[in-house]
């Protein structure tokens, strides 16, 4: 890597993540850059979440390297990392029936914001995130009273409120109806169009084809392909990755059944 001008974005090189005896991710190399929406695809247990957690330093890596803008992620203080990268984990439990605005404001944690005393840039960022996710009307509502679709928007707004240049979302549309899947993907697309770089774990290849600029395919802890949808998405790939029979014609994807 060029020492003078390190590549922008999140970069993982030969990353290996282990848990006890098991190797969850082996020698994974990928890059997440501003202005690009990447879909991370792979069957359950392929190691997608472990790859993400390892790449952003939430799980210690066994070997390899990962960092943001050339800086080793393992040496970055959590708050500085959080100002560069917002992370939306797969499990999003809310411990308390907090109001929507407070949950969104937690996205400003790394900027030093304290709930109930938002000032200046923090307050503006929270208002922008609420507006972007169409949550202004719900801002004072308790999150315990929201529907699944509304909650998904709250979590997106929480991630956007950080105003970090990078976003990693682990299954952001799981358990959402088709309408809300589009809503959330549109929000992520808008974030990328504004100059952000996003990586989302998706299970719906059709949805991924519609939104993503790049596909990273994973199986058995390895990245098996990384490139544009046109380059990497094929009927053979669907069979190899998921064990399903599918048809790919241009931008149209159809999954017909198990192989």
């Amino acid at each position: 890597m060029d020492r003078q001008r390190p590549a922008r974005g999140l970069h993982a090189r030969d990353l290996t993540v282990t848990a006890g005896e098991a190797t969850l991710v082996r020698d994974a190399t990928f890059r997440l850059q501003p202005g690009e929406l990447t879909a991370l695809l792979g069957p359950n247990g392929a190691g997608k979440t472990s790859l993400l957690r390892g790449a952003i330093g939430l799980t210690p890596r066994a070997s390899g390297w990962a960092g943001i803008d050339g800086e080793d992620i393992a040496r970055m203080p959590p708050r500085r990392r959080a100002r560069q990268l917002a992370y939306l984990p797969q499990n999003r439990p809310l411990a308390w029936p907090s109001p929507v605005r407070d949950v969104v404001a937690l996205g400003r944690f790394a900027h030093g914001a304290a709930l109930g005393r938002l000032r200046g840039a923090d307050r503006r960022a929270v208002e922008r995130a609420l507006a972007a996710c169409d949550l202004e009307r719900l801002a004072e509502r308790s999150t315990a009273t929201l529907s699944g679709g509304e909650l998904a928007r709250v979590h997106c707004a929480r991630a956007f409120a950080a105003e970090a240049p990078l976003l990693i979302a682990d299954e952001p549309v799981a358990e959402l109806d088709p309408y809300h899947q589009f809503t959330v993907m549109n929000l992520i697309r808008d974030f990328v169009n504004r100059g952000g770089g996003a990586l989302a774990v998706l299970h719906d290849v059709v949805l991924a084809r519609r939104y993503a600029d790049r596909f990273i395919w994973m199986k058995d802890g390895r990245i098996v392909a990384d490139g544009t949808p046109a380059e990497t998405l094929s009927a053979a790939r669907l069979g190899e990755i998921y064990g399903v029979r599918g048809r790919v014609e241009g931008e149209r994807v159809e999954i017909e059944g198990p192989l």
Partner: peptide
Amino acid sequence: RGLSALTLGEEAASGVGL
């Protein structure tokens, strides 16, 4: 302040910089 962040669960709390 970290206790507020933990409202999101431990993983998301580490994600926001705790």
